[in-house]
Design a protein around this nucleic acid. Structure first.
Lengths: 162, 162
DNA sequence: TTTCGATGGTTACAAATGAAACCAATTTGG
DNA sequence: CCAAATTGGTTTCATTTGTAACCATCGAAA
């Protein structure tokens, strides 16, 4: 029978690597400040851009709006950010880091950079460039709607449901 | 102040890409059979190797033992696999796909392969090779204990807890 | 042997996630 | 102008996940 070699299956390899790296990196924000990934990304987004709306945050950091919503709520609870209602459109809120939020951000940036440098140091210049290029290619490709080439009908047959 | 550009931050890019790819690929096993990722990996592991123990499965597919345990329980419930107690060590169970399990596996393998081919087709030969090489480098590096270079003390200060 | 630390695997509980419903406020199209 | 569709954002509920505790069973040491 036709067999799939999981270890070399690209989606699996990608996921596994990203998971390992991300897990390790999470120490930077989790151990020290008890942040979740969505919270860290929110902090990072605002630290980088100054002021953003929840929607913008979601776009920039690839998070579902519920994640953004919850992360923003938590950072607000910590008083790391404040919301300012938009003048023209009262559905929108502009989010900005407080002094405390900026302090936390400023503290984490060097750690993040050091982590990245350390990670990249595992690769030669050439490999690194290649990796980046490869990532970019797949990224742009996957934006254009990654196609799942299936011909089979969708069916969750009886007894297969959980 | 020192700023981090999230979009080009390697851990973020990796994660984001893996997430997008994995999400798209999940159609193959989720839409059609309602499997979760751990369930799919378990199926894939057994399909590839014939018979494995839970521990082996966890190692091969990088899953925590609780994930394996739950995935195995669900596949058993579906009668896609059976457990056989080990003769020598009664803690151990050998897992094998049933006919039904094999059928599901056999059905998904070509879809998985097609997905991968489609994905890789976005890259030139060279880029692909480079990407693989880059992944391998970081992988092997991250196995050797990815170091988080922090000097700061670990503290989850009062008021920062959730 | 008996005891004690590892190991294979499951379970309980809390936290994180995703999907869908929801509530405004806004825009669009008659 | 007004109804309907859209959009920004929150909330609810069901799943999924992670952590730690747990229950055997096993292996090594005394």
């Amino acid at each position: 029978m036709d067999v799939l070699e999981l270890e070399s299956f690209l989606p699996y390899r990608l996921y596994r690597l990203a998971d390992a790296v991300s897990r390790e990196f999470s120490r930077v924000y989790k151990d020290r400040h008890g942040l979740t990934r969505p919270e860290w990304r929110t902090l990072a987004g605002l630290g980088q851009h100054g002021t953003m709306t929840a929607t913008e945050l979601g776009e920039q950091s690839a998070m579902h709006k519920t994640k953004v919503s919850r992360a923003v709520a938590e950072l607000e609870r910590r008083r790391w950010l404040t919301r300012t209602p938009d003048e023209k459109d009262r559905r929108v809120e502009h989010l900005t880091l407080t002094r405390a939020g900026l302090a936390a951000y400023g503290e984490m940036v060097p750690l993040a950079k050091a982590f990245e440098v350390n990670l990249m140091s595992k690769l030669t210049e050439g490999d690194m460039a290649a990796l980046i290029k490869g990532l970019a290619s797949i990224e742009s490709a996957s934006k254009q709607k990654l196609q799942t080439p299936t011909t089979l009908p969708t069916l969750v047959a009886a007894g297969e449901k959980k």
